[in-house]
Design a protein around this nucleic acid. Structure first.
Lengths: 218, 218
DNA sequence: CGGTGATATGAGTGGACCTCATGTTAAGCC
DNA sequence: GGCTTAACATGAGGTCCACTCATATCACCG
């Protein structure tokens, strides 16, 4: 499983106490996101709520965006873990079942995981930072393409489970599918607090119609 | 045509001079977005570049987000105007042509319109502001669903041009299509400065496959 | 137990957003 | 034209936030 500290933390927490502190800060970040939204979220309040001095906050997180990026990464891990578990237990007969499970799991997390309604794991909010077109030395755009990680994982899982044909076309198709699904589901949750059921249904149709083109066998 | 001042401005510029100032501020906002990105954009610098005192800036725009929202609205107007023109001139035989034109126009604007690469007209950046779930009196979430306006307009245009069957199902389908297309095209431009051609092609396939389900005739 | 490097802390610095008291212009009226 | 009144313009300054860094504390080991 990926780790939250992959490229997002300044220092990896070594001792037990530090690990717990980082975890608490992420918990409070998620809680405060639900409470006040992204713009009004302050690093000071996150630190205070977690019972951690502000200096320590900056020992681990480079800035506010790094904090949110780390939360997105943790959400990604949780999502993949839950999805893997369900794909393993429930018997999957074809890829449409996998799509349904993924959508179900995403919706469930939107409803129950703190902060997930505001920050899931897709494109991290307002363009990572700094000049977006100038220099090419953005080495930390890892989080930018979390959806690529999801696509990768879905590919591995589905190939495992039903021996789909691999190839660069499939990779791209899965990335596109994840990106589109993420957008439509976000819309569903902007419209309706629990996710507009009609829009969720349309999301499934969208993904199925598209993937049916790329996975002709079935 | 919609107007930039629809719900986003504090005061509507009445005199000629004021209109020009607002326009200049939006121009500079777009230019600076390309130059430094969203996070590093400052109201002071926008005002300074536009040759306008900071106090005047706040006469018209409620805050930084309002500025960006107004730019998104202006982009929306421009997009719809250009699309309408091209849909009118070029002969459209079926709806797939309309989809292609819309995608083409979006891509063209991503490449040439200042700031459009950073802020097009979709969901306006980090959740409009304030508590997102609490009160229901957010009266200015107009900009939140700019894509709904696009969908509306596309519906009107296509119905006009080829007499498609209207209905709530079609409305929702178009909104979903626009939302998904927006997401995939944004991905295409995050990946590649001029827009990854393969991803743009996939965007067309995605929309066609989905809409083919909803527009069974033809 | 002294030394050495890692870790912890929070007052302080710079800077961004936004206001508001004051100055300036325009408009109506006799 | 003079006078009154209201709309508009301005930028110094208040407030708050992100982030730093000098100092303190701890962990480990010879």
């Amino acid at each position: 499983m990926t780790n939250v500290s992959a490229g997002t933390l300044r220092r990896r927490p070594a001792q037990r106490r530090s690990v717990e502190r980082v975890e608490r800060m992420l918990d409070e970040c998620a809680r405060l996101l639900d409470e006040v939204g992204y713009e009004a979220l302050t690093t000071k309040e996150v630190a205070r709520s977690a019972g951690v001095p502000i200096g320590t906050f900056y020992q681990f997180f480079p800035d506010k965006q790094g904090l949110v990026r780390a939360l997105a990464l943790r959400n990604l891990d949780a999502f993949l873990a839950r999805l893997t578990a369900r794909l393993g237990s429930a018997g999957i007969s074809d890829w449409t079942d996998a799509v349904d499970l993924a959508v179900d799991e995403f919706v469930a997390m939107k409803r129950t995981t703190p902060g997930f309604a505001i920050v899931d794991f897709g494109e991290v909010l307002p363009t990572p930072e700094g000049p977006p077109l100038k220099g090419t030395n953005r080495l930390l755009d890892a989080a930018l393409e979390n959806n690529v990680i999801v696509a990768d994982r879905l590919r591995a899982l589905t190939i495992d489970l039903l021996g789909a044909p691999t190839g660069p076309g499939l990779d791209r198709a899965l990335i596109v599918a994840v990106e589109a699904a993420d957008a439509v589901l976000k819309l569903a949750f902007r419209t309706h607090p629990d996710g507009d059921p009609d829009l969720i249904a349309e999301c499934r149709r969208l993904i199925r119609a598209y993937l049916a083109d790329h996975l002709p066998e079935l």
